[in-house]
Simulated assay, not measured.
Amino acid sequence: MTMHNTAKRVEWLQARLRLLEAEKALTRQSDEVARMRQALPRLRIDKSYTFDTDQGSATLADLFQGRSQLLVYHFMFGPDWAAGCPSCSMIADGFDGFAVHLANHDVMLMAVSRAPLAKLQAYKKRMGWSFPWASALSNDFNFDFNVSFTEQQQRDGGIEYNYRRGGHEMDMQPVPPTVAAFAATCGTDAGSFTRDRPGMSAFLREDGVIYHTYSTYARGLDGLWGAYQWLDRAPKGRNESGIWWRRRDEYEAR
C-alpha cells in the first residue's frame, strides 16, 4: 500500500485538483472507447439456438423479451457443478438493481449458463436473485461465443479465450491454487471448472434479424463488477493479495 503524508487542507486540495484532471481525461477516454465499441461492425446471427428458461423453451430472439437490445452475461456454471462461480456471483449481485432500468431503456439483461435450468433456479433462489437466467445446456451458444470449451480443445491446447490462444490463468499448468480453490467451491474439479469462463455479449435485433455487436471477457468485465468500482475509491483501494471474496451467504457475520 502507498504510504501517505498528512497534509494541510491547501496541499490536499492541490493534489486533489491534479487527480481531478487525470479523472477527467480518463472519463473522456472512456467516452471515446464507448463510441468505438458502438461503432464496431455487426455480425449477423443466422444460427438457431434454443434455451431453457423459466417460461419454457425459448429462442435467442425470445430472450430479447420485446426489446431491440440484449446483453448476455455468460455466467460460469457448468453442467456438473454444484454451485455457480463465486466471482460471477459477486458480479451478479448487482444485476437485480439495474436490470429494471435497462429493461425500461430498450435493453434486456439476461444471464446464460450451461448448467441445467433446475440448477440455475435453485441457485438463484439460494442467492435471492430475480433476474432472468437461461440454460444453454442443449445448444452451442456458449461454445460459439468462446466461453465454453470441450475436453478435446483443452487437451490439444486449442482454447481461444479473450481473442487469443493461451496465456490466461485458467490455461496454466500446473493449475494455479486459486483456480483449484474456486473449482472446489463449485463442487467440481479444475479441469471442468476451466472449461467454462466468464464473458459478456451484446446483440441487436433489427427488422427481424439478430446481430452480434460486441463481446468482452476476463478483465474486460471489470467495469461490470460493481464492488470493485467502489473499492477503487476506498482509501486502501482493492487492497487484495489473493482471493478474499465469497458468495454473499458465505461471509461470517460482522
Rank of each mutant, 00 (worst) to 15 (best):
R219F: 00
Y163P: 02
D222I: 14
R155V: 05
D196L: 12
A61D: 07
T150P: 03
M110S: 02
V112P: 00
G226W: 09
S130P: 01
T27Q: 10
D222N: 15
G84Q: 06
L224D: 06
T50D: 07
Y161M: 08
Q154H: 12
Q229W: 05
A83V: 00
C186L: 03
M3G: 09
V107D: 05
H101L: 07
T2Y: 04
D52C: 00
F149W: 06
L13G: 01
D196Q: 14
R246Q: 12
R18C: 10
W244L: 08
M76P: 03
T53Q: 09
G223K: 08
V72Y: 00
R9I: 10
S215K: 12
G56K: 12
F203I: 06
R165Q: 09
L224P: 00
S241T: 14
Q173W: 13
E23N: 13
W129K: 02
G66Y: 06
M170K: 08
D46F: 03
L109T: 03
E240M: 14
A103W: 04
F145S: 03
F64W: 05
A22M: 07
Y73W: 11
W244G: 07
A7H: 15
W129M: 03
M127A: 08
E240A: 15
R219C: 02
G191V: 14
L137P: 03
R9D: 06
L20F: 13
V209M: 04
E160Q: 11
E250K: 15
L17K: 10
Y49W: 00
T53N: 07
G157Y: 10
M110D: 01
H168R: 11
Y214C: 01
G242Q: 02
R42C: 06
S135P: 01
Q154P: 08
G84L: 09
D106W: 15
T213S: 10
A202Y: 05
L224M: 13
S138A: 10
M90G: 07
S113L: 01
E169H: 15
E32C: 01
M3F: 13
S201T: 12
P79K: 09
D140A: 14
H4T: 10
D232E: 11
D249T: 08
V33W: 12
N104F: 02
P177M: 03
V72R: 01
L40P: 05
A22C: 09
T150F: 09
L26E: 07
Y161T: 06
L26W: 10
R42Y: 12
F131H: 09
Q55R: 14
I243Y: 13
A15G: 13
Y73K: 01
G97P: 02
R238L: 11
R164G: 02
S89I: 04
M172P: 01
A181L: 12
E11M: 10
A202W: 05
R126T: 05
A218M: 10
V209N: 04
R114P: 01
L13P: 00
D232T: 07
R254W: 10
E169V: 15
D140L: 12
